[in-house]
Design a protein around this nucleic acid. Structure first.
Lengths: 354, 354
DNA sequence: ATGAAAGCGCTAACAG
DNA sequence: CTGTTAGCGCTTTCAT
């Protein structure tokens, strides 16, 4: 293999501008103590020669790497990719993360890590030692994994925990799961629904619990019971079928259901259809995630939109701020979710007989 | 900012194993001239200390960076992400690319580059000089951009051009656009269709032309005329509406249409519906890309599946081989596309009156 | 088969 | 304000 070297290095620039390496370095890093005319002269040489600093060299000499590592769960991500169901979590992360990184001259590197592995730490260490990122973004279910969190804390690398509300090491950034479930429930209550079923997500994800909490709070505040209205799922279509079946075949079936993700909402739609129930006439339905498929179902689904791009963008900002030595915000950072209203919810008055 | 240093370096390992740095380096890189027992001893220290080489240091000292850069068109990619229509091109690239990279101890870095920019070269140089990747993957429409290709050739970095059939600098890897369009046309011909319309994609993409070529070849071989059966689109829904309108409102409307991507197929579906035509009874439809949405249309679309993951995986293999000094294959590398048969195609016998 | 020395491109620390 | 020196962690010579 040819030994590939940097074509233009700081040395060339220094020689061209007739200054020392250090001055060039100062200009690159926008440091003070450089006279404007000097700075201009150096910048001219940089432009002329097309010089770009090597992050390898920058990192090696103890400076920043300008790399932000975004870590996702390996199994789940690969499964989503292979299933080709249009889950666009990764795309939205890249959208929010890469653009914000680019604004600051950083780069986002996307990595997969296996949660279930007994050597998570080795995997993490591999990525960290090899890449030396300036910051790390953790996503569910990693964000609340104590093993991962404590390991990262030891490494002294700033990290954000997306989808977490726990304080502790790292900076938690929440997508307000409790609040959005509450909001979705309210949306139904306002339209006259009283028996509102809820299909929860995998208990491996802390956010699953918060969504249940939000629903329960809204129900309780409205003076309504929750008994028999909660069914457990695990985010899979199959679990959605089972959960929906349980809810819809009970003695007093709910007039509305909130599913903790789109796949389970899809399953609910299918179960309803098989039972001869028409959505939204006989059953109102709200889903979580708002992935592209909700446009194409019959009817299109009203859904809670997770602000993934905005959250990732925020995470990058927090990381870059931390890297500059600014303290993490004391308050939990929250990106509010919103409900996209489509056609799967009807007022209860429109129920059978109306 | 704290000056973060590598926790465990090659020095620590060398000291622990009681050997020279050099020997450790040889073990890491699997080089010859190390006695098995020596190798074992060093490996034991590596495992014990949890040592991982720093790519920054490796790269800086003239070795590999273990980084593969995958470059996509900025505008189009961002537009796809924002549109949230479930286009999973990026996901499939990551799926194929990241997994193959991981197999070989490489990492894939995903980058966006603006083709239309007058300083493409600066953008590319920025990424290359900063990251020093061992290989680059180009995707359409970059793959045949002479400016980009010649610039990369100068840099002496191995690169693959996905979706290209031209020889020249870099290694072309084709998804057989001509062949799959031919195949799709055949699929319809076999079912009795004679007037088969074709909606082309943006002429900015060379593959658009090849798809037209494939369709034309199949028609010609079957002794059928193509006149008035080709409509130009640009991959957008709007252009699909226009193209489908043109094809379907002519004097002799086609009994089948092939659209060069899913969005235009969706548009065709909509136009047909508005004209009172039922798919597939009155019009058969085949689309390209097979993005997730084709499952959800009414009816689900028969579609040509682009083997994006397989192609990216292959691209990574070729790059790693090139990096090892192996010559690029003399023949054009082709990953065959396949047709996913769903419900949007009917034999012509089933046409009106059947 | 192993080790020692030099240097990759850059920045931190210290001079002046 | 600017320059000099040392060294980051590793691989490449070149010895032995």
């Amino acid at each position: 293999m040819a030994r590939r070297r940097q074509a233009v290095t700081i040395k060339h620039v220094a020689a061209d501008a007739g200054v020392s390496l250090q001055t060039v370095s100062r200009v690159i890093n926008n440091e003070p103590n450089v006279r404007p005319e000097m700075k201009e002269r150096v910048q001219a040489s940089i432009d002329k020669l097309g010089y770009v600093p090597s992050i390898a060299a920058q990192r090696l000499s103890g400076s920043r790497s300008y790399l932000i590592l975004a870590i996702n769960d390996r199994d789940r991500t690969i499964a989503d990719w292979q299933a080709r169901q249009g889950t666009d979590w990764v795309d939205q992360m890249l959208l929010g993360g890469m653009l914000k990184c680019a604004e600051h001259g950083y780069r986002m590197i996307f990595e997969l890590v296996d949660t279930h592995s007994d050597h998570v730490e080795r995997e993490l260490l591999g990525a960290i030692a090899a890449l030396q990122p300036d910051g790390i973004i953790l996503t569910p279910p990693h964000s609340d994994n104590p093993q991962i969190v404590s390991f990262l804390a030891e490494q002294k690398i700033p990290f954000v925990r997306i989808g977490s509300i726990q304080n502790g090491a790292g900076i938690p950034v929440s997508m307000d799961d409790e609040g959005s479930a509450y909001q979705a429930t309210e949306h139904l209550l306002e339209r006259g629904h009283r028996r509102i079923g809820f299909i929860s997500g995998s208990s491996e994800y802390a956010l699953s619990g918060w969504r249940v909490d939000g629903w329960r709070r809204a129900m309780t505040e409205a003076g309504l019971p929750c008994d028999g209205l909660l069914a457990e799922g695990d985010f899979s279509f199959a679990s959605g079928v089972e959960a929906a079946g349980k809810l819809l075949s009970g003695p007093q079936r709910p007039s509305a259901i909130i599913a903790s993700n789109d796949q389970m909402a899809l399953a609910t739609l299918e179960v309803a259809r098989l039972m001869g129930l028409t959505v939204p006439r006989d059953l109102s339905l709200i889903s979580f995630d708002n992935t592209p498929l909700v446009h194409f179902t019959q009817p299109p689904l009203t859904a809670v939109d997770q602000p993934i791009a905005a959250t990732t963008s925020r995470a990058v900002e927090l990381l870059i701020a931390a890297q500059k030595g600014q303290p993490a915000p004391k308050e939990l950072t929250v990106e509010r979710a919103s409900i996209f209203v489509r056609e799967s919810v009807a007022p209860l008055a429109d129920a059978p007989g109306a």
